[in-house]
Design a protein around this nucleic acid. Sequence first.
DNA 1: TCACAAGATTGAAACCTTTCAACAAATCGT
DNA 2: ACGATTTGTTGAAAGGTTTCAATCTTGTGA
Lengths: 337, 337
Amino acid sequence: MARSASVKDVAAHAGVSLGTVSNVLNRPDRVSPDTRERVQRAMAELGFVRNESARQLRAGTSRTLAYVMLDASNPFFTDVAAGIDVAAEAADLSLMLFNSRNSSDREHSHLALLEQQRVQGVLVTPVDPDSPALDELAQRGTPVVIVDRTRSDQSFCSVAVDDVLGGRLAIEHLIDRGHERVAFVGGPATLGQVRDRRQGARAAWKAAGLPREDLVEISTTALDVAQGREAGQRLAGMAAQRRPTAAFCANDLVALGLLQQAIGAGQQVPADLAIVGYDDIEFAAAAAVPLTSVRQPRQELGRTAAELVLDEAANPAHGHRQVLFTPELVARASTLG
Amino acid sequence: MARSASVKDVAAHAGVSLGTVSNVLNRPDRVSPDTRERVQRAMAELGFVRNESARQLRAGTSRTLAYVMLDASNPFFTDVAAGIDVAAEAADLSLMLFNSRNSSDREHSHLALLEQQRVQGVLVTPVDPDSPALDELAQRGTPVVIVDRTRSDQSFCSVAVDDVLGGRLAIEHLIDRGHERVAFVGGPATLGQVRDRRQGARAAWKAAGLPREDLVEISTTALDVAQGREAGQRLAGMAAQRRPTAAFCANDLVALGLLQQAIGAGQQVPADLAIVGYDDIEFAAAAAVPLTSVRQPRQELGRTAAELVLDEAANPAHGHRQVLFTPELVARASTLG
DNA sequence: TCACAAGATTGAAACCTTTCAACAAATCGT
DNA sequence: ACGATTTGTTGAAAGGTTTCAATCTTGTGA
């Protein structure tokens, strides 16, 4: 392509100075109506497109926000992203999404690029929330908010949902429904989410005075559908009197896999096996046996995260806040049948 | 934050000229090992971060590719995005994702920003593939590839899947299974996909010599789960001898909604109603009655699109190509029971 | 008619990096 | 020991925009 026209070309073509062209672009009211029109016509004729690099270099500020997501194929994160998008749009910023696909390397290379681009702020659901790369990024001045994860210390803004409470809600619901032998399905335990949900589950179990060994743990290597199916087979393989009558899964993907396996093996849900998922993604309600699940306020999570990062970017007196949302149990047929 | 250090600061701190710092950054081999090390130490001490705007302004080239997706919450598109990502990574570019959420306005504002950013190339699944905004963008020199849509003319590179064939495969499968009254569920007809799939369905129906009125059309206002449920209710409301024994849905989300409604109403799938979806998203196989679906090579779609846009960016002799992939029917329990 | 204010336009400087011709120093061959 | 290479380093120019003090025009009030 021919090198595209610059303000200078437009100025020459319209017979005005280059400062005036810039004024038309940035303070149209400072310029008389007829010159303004002349300049705009010149822009149209030359196909002028503002060079954002130059603009940003001079102005020092970019008009974008970025969200580095852990796994774009998990609907939970796309819903969070939609919430961020709403807030970004309200602030007249564009949201760029990056997918680290569970890889630290990809995550770090995206973060490095974003820092070089001087984006207004970075939202990130990190592979490892305690990675020092995040500290360095923040320390050098990029506003960073951690999404759906928390840190041991309070050195960042973060938004997350109370997973311990969520685990408790799930188990209390199953206990209410009369179950006395329940499986917790999820893993790996290196994920904070998994640990917290399990911890809440155990606390509720203990509080109900039920014997510890009747909360059976089935560990998976990832939180996806395939692992849910696999866990279902292990469950099915257990001796009948030891087999749990209900399962609480660490997320909906696992729960859907488990549901599929159970129905495929001819079991009735919830009569033979009740199932509770986590996240309440759209496909949970749309499953053939609609799934009871712990709902997280995904959109609000994203919206709040965006507001925090914008505050950090704009407000010099910004103080870090850790926002914790409250989850909610949505009971459906997979436990109510 | 304190304004971050520039090459000039690094040069001063390391006691070298500014050109040398740039060499360390871009041609490390041209610089002697000890000065290189000195400069690198200075960078680390000052927390130097290269300013990408300035780099890009001078170098004229960005290191990013962008995909403007129609609906990030549809797993089909995130899978396509993953395919693009793989190819982008291989070319050492970063992929930025934007979500237009089915809005032309959002799509256009994203495209405008990307043009200003002078990205290497833009991949887009547009709300309206015939929008003149795309022509203008391409005409001004930004490489553009249309993904999962096609244009009447050949003025763009595009990658898509043969939807007419896909529709034919679905209906032929149902005819093979002995169905003689089938519903086509989908809409709105303004979507090229819907039109093509329906056209293929009709062609196959006609080729089998079946009466036209026995391919019943149930039109939806969108291709999502809620509309699928709604369509299910309309189906259920039909008089028994007029009611189709099978449904071909224009995508999997609709099929899942239909499946849910049917099972909720106590019907047996496929005995009372066989269902074929389209896209073969992961949740199709994971549904409680695994869904027969028409699979599209999603990742390959993305990968090919990325390769086309990179060729257009790099190769002056580039000619536009319209790549059409072949879909494939994956038969599962929802038609095989 | 003159002084002044208000409004419109100008042009140079600054933002930070990369590139490249030119220069300096070290190394080599003879 | 001397010119020719090679290796390493320099500094100015360029890239496109925005900003801002300065200048020019026009209109107003006395």
